[in-house]
Design a protein around this nucleic acid. Sequence first.
RNA 1: GAGAUUGUAGCUCAGCUGGUUAGAGCGCUGGUUUGUGGCACCAGAGGUCGGGGGUUCGAACCCCCUCAUUCUCCCCA
Length: 447
Amino acid sequence: MQKPSLPEGTRDFGPEQARKRAWIFDTIRSVFVKFGFQPLETPAMENLGTLTGKYGDEGDQLLFKILNNGDYLKDADPELLAAKNSAKLLPQISKRGLRYDLTVPFARFVVMNHHALTFPFKRYQIQPVWRADRPQKGRYREFFQCDADVIGSDSLLYEAELTQIYDEAFAKLGIPVVIKINNRKILYGIAEAAGIADRFMDMTVAIDKLDKIGVDGVRQELLGRGIPDTGVATILDVLSEPSFQALRPVFANSETGMKGIEELERVFHLLGKTTLHNEVRFDVTLARGLTYYTGCIFEVAAKDVKMGSIGGGGRYADLTGVFGMPGLSGVGISFGADRIYDVLESLNRFPANLSETVPVLFVAFDDTTHEFAFECVSRVRAAGLAAELYPEPGKLKKQFEYAAKRNIPYVVIVGETEMNTGMITVKNQISGEQTNMTVEELIGIIA
RNA sequence: GAGAUUGUAGCUCAGCUGGUUAGAGCGCUGGUUUGUGGCACCAGAGGUCGGGGGUUCGAACCCCCUCAUUCUCCCCA
């Protein structure tokens, strides 16, 4: 007899948790639908070639690979095997992997189905993704993402609308957030102004850490990455600017940087015509790791809770290009459902009524009354309402304890008297009040 | 991949510098109540002390190995 356990970084979700999670998904989905996004589902596994090379070297490391079926070593190169060369051996023993995010499978889907799609194509997708990461606070190896992406339009309207979606969804979820916006073009402009356009990636990785390691930390990081003193000075100077408008003089010689400012200007202009519940803030230090972002980038942080970002996204000018279909611009956002769950739990913001299961439980004394109770419970269900009948007639104590543990607010007692008169005894579990009535009257109460 | 942390009953945890039959609270089962849950009281079940090896007269406690957890770095939702 072995002790059962779960793989590292995965979890079961009991009834209570599953209800709360369903509420999160339903809430987010309702906002997606309101903005005209259509549902999409893709397989848990993709061909490995679809996934590799999309998330950088580090991302490839974090992909879960699926071992081929059957005699998977049959075609393996003996030399590679002997040399224990895992990297080169991999394609010979694994041709599939678990999806790492929902964006790349979406791009794959669009390329495969572009003939049947109407552009701009707006889809939402709520499914688990897997990363072979080291689990820690707010980080799991299996977690759900809720994505909304538009592909086939470069209109900045969508940047504004996706911001609205974030704002509305988090308002509905009851989580106060800050929605941070930046633009990769602005980051590139800074790199150009600092004369280190070729070290763009190094720069973004470094300044992304500002709120974590401080100005001095960023300076060390930049210098450590081999960026010259003059460049570092320019970069640190820019980081203190709270407004993207102030960057205009810096971008005097950077066409890309100016374009970034114009894009943000347009997005904020549109957002200015609506009312938002949460703060939307330009943040020059927002960089985000994924390599394919080219325009606006988003990140959502919960206020008052120490947690990594609970949402992120951005514009990618050419995501489908790697699948042989260049020129399709896309923009999307993602909600981290598992972290949102953790935030709601620590904020104690889940709606109270989520713990209620069914409104009424029928209990009986013997086989005869049990059968009559079965008729009664069926009539309640026929009226479209949820109801349960305790499986065994007999001791009331046991049946009442069951009702209490299940948080069932009404218990109907069906005995000989009730059966003969048709007047069932209905007990309100919260007030303790007990009254006789017909099944129809009960239906009226719980409806 | 690197570092730290924790692992004792179903759950949360005590368990002294190594010393007899390893404890508590909650939960669970039965009873006080064969037409009434929460409260109270009574009784009871439940533990290879994560696993393996070692030191010792003696190990939950010390040492080594191993597995797992949680957290930090890297990176990310």
